[in-house]
Simulated scan of single mutants.
Amino acid sequence: MTEFADEARTRLAHLLRMAGSAVDEERARITDHVSNTPDPPLLGPYGIRTASCPRCRWTMWEHRDVDGSAISVCSRCGHVQGVSP
């Protein structure tokens, strides 16, 4: 497969391919996860950093606030917290 074709794949297709499972229940869980979580933020100069949300234990994506400080935002409940250096 060409690089261009691989880049055109959806997030769901990438995750299903990486899981490499033919089990319907596992594929359904991955599909549910993708449909209920936002895409990660664009890769910036700091890379992509994640943490576990203290409220719901879902994935928190690190973003930059308007003043440039690092904050984490939960992809499920929306909880926001500062990131200590």
Score class of each variant (00 low, 15 high):
residue 4 F to P: 02
residue 6 D to I: 11
residue 6 D to N: 13
residue 7 E to H: 05
residue 8 A to I: 06
residue 8 A to G: 13
residue 9 R to M: 10
residue 9 R to E: 08
residue 11 R to I: 07
residue 11 R to C: 03
residue 13 A to K: 04
residue 14 H to D: 12
residue 15 L to D: 00
residue 15 L to H: 03
residue 16 L to I: 08
residue 16 L to R: 10
residue 17 R to C: 06
residue 17 R to V: 05
residue 18 M to P: 00
residue 19 A to T: 03
residue 23 V to T: 15
residue 23 V to Y: 07
residue 25 E to S: 15
residue 26 E to V: 15
residue 26 E to N: 04
residue 27 R to Q: 14
residue 27 R to D: 07
residue 27 R to S: 08
residue 30 I to E: 06
residue 30 I to V: 15
residue 30 I to S: 07
residue 30 I to N: 07
residue 31 T to I: 04
residue 32 D to F: 08
residue 32 D to M: 05
residue 32 D to T: 13
residue 32 D to V: 02
residue 34 V to T: 05
residue 34 V to G: 03
residue 37 T to S: 12
residue 38 P to F: 02
residue 41 P to D: 00
residue 41 P to Y: 00
residue 41 P to T: 00
residue 42 L to I: 08
residue 44 G to P: 00
residue 45 P to W: 01
residue 46 Y to S: 06
residue 46 Y to D: 10
residue 49 R to S: 12
residue 50 T to N: 07
residue 52 S to A: 05
residue 52 S to R: 07
residue 53 C to F: 02
residue 53 C to E: 01
residue 54 P to E: 07
residue 54 P to C: 06
residue 54 P to A: 06
residue 56 C to E: 04
residue 57 R to S: 12
residue 59 T to H: 01
residue 60 M to S: 09
residue 61 W to R: 01
residue 62 E to M: 14
residue 63 H to I: 09
residue 63 H to G: 02
residue 63 H to Y: 15
residue 64 R to N: 06
residue 64 R to E: 12
residue 64 R to M: 05
residue 65 D to P: 00
residue 67 D to R: 08
residue 67 D to F: 06
residue 67 D to G: 10
residue 68 G to W: 04
residue 69 S to K: 09
residue 69 S to P: 01
residue 70 A to F: 11
residue 71 I to T: 07
residue 72 S to K: 04
residue 74 C to Q: 05
residue 74 C to S: 07
residue 75 S to Y: 03
residue 75 S to I: 01
residue 76 R to F: 14
residue 76 R to A: 14
residue 78 G to V: 02
residue 79 H to K: 11
residue 79 H to E: 14
residue 80 V to D: 03
residue 80 V to W: 06
residue 82 G to L: 09
residue 84 S to Q: 15
residue 84 S to G: 14
